[in-house]
C-alpha cells in the first residue's frame, strides 16, 4: 500500500517545511519543559498554550504495530512509535515486513514524499 499524499494547511506548514528538509518537528512548551505531538493545540501535560515548534532527535521505540495484508505485495506495517522526547507518532514502517517486529524495538524517523503530497515521517527499524 502506498502512502497517501497529504496536503498542508496553515497550521501544518512549518512541520511540512521541516519534513522536506528531513527534520521532525514536535510541539514544545517552554513553561512546562514538556513535549507534545505535532497536532497538539496545547501542552499535553499542563494545557499551557505556549507551544512552539522544536526539532526532535527523531529516535524512539516501537509501542505497537499492525500488519495490513497486501493483495500481491508483502504486508504494510504501521507502527506506533514513542519518541525519546515522549510523544507518540503513527508512522509507516517502510523497511519492516512484519514477522521480525516486536515491541520495544528502536525506531529511527525518516521521511518519504508520496507523489502529489508533502514529505511525511516514516519509521525505520533497520537503519
Amino acid at each position: 500500500m502506498t502512502l497517501t499524499p497529504v496536503e498542508r494547511d496553515e497550521r501544518s506548514a512549518p512541520f511540512f517545511d521541516a519534513a522536506a528538509r528531513g527534520v521532525l518537528l514536535l510541539r514544545y512548551s517552554p513553561s512546562s519543559g514538556m513535549w507534545s505531538e505535532p497536532d497538539a493545540l496545547v501542552c499535553g501535560h499542563t494545557g499551557a498554550a505556549d507551544l512552539e515548534w522544536r526539532e526532535s532527535g527523531g529516535r524512539g521505540h516501537l509501542v505497537s504495530w499492525t500488519v495490513l495484508p497486501g493483495r500481491d505485495a508483502p504486508g504494510t506495517v504501521i507502527g506506533l512509535v514513542e519518541l525519546a522526547e515522549g510523544p507518540w507518532l503513527t508512522v509507516r514502517l517502510t523497511d519492516a515486513e512484519g514477522p521480525e517486529v516486536a515491541a520495544g524495538m528502536p525506531v529511527r524517523i525518516g521521511f518519504a514524499r508520496p507523489e502529489g503530497g508533502e514529505a511525511m515521517p516514516v519509521g525505520l527499524l533497520h537503519a
Binding site: M1, L3, T4, P5, V6, E7, R8, D9, R11, S12, F15, P38, D39, L68, T76, I78, L89, T90, V91, R92, P114, G117, M120, P121, V122
Partner: peptide, 11 residues
Amino acid sequence: RGLGSLPAAAG
C-alpha cells in the same frame, strides 16, 4: 489535509 491526517495517510 494537515497533521490530523498523518495516521490515516500512513495507512
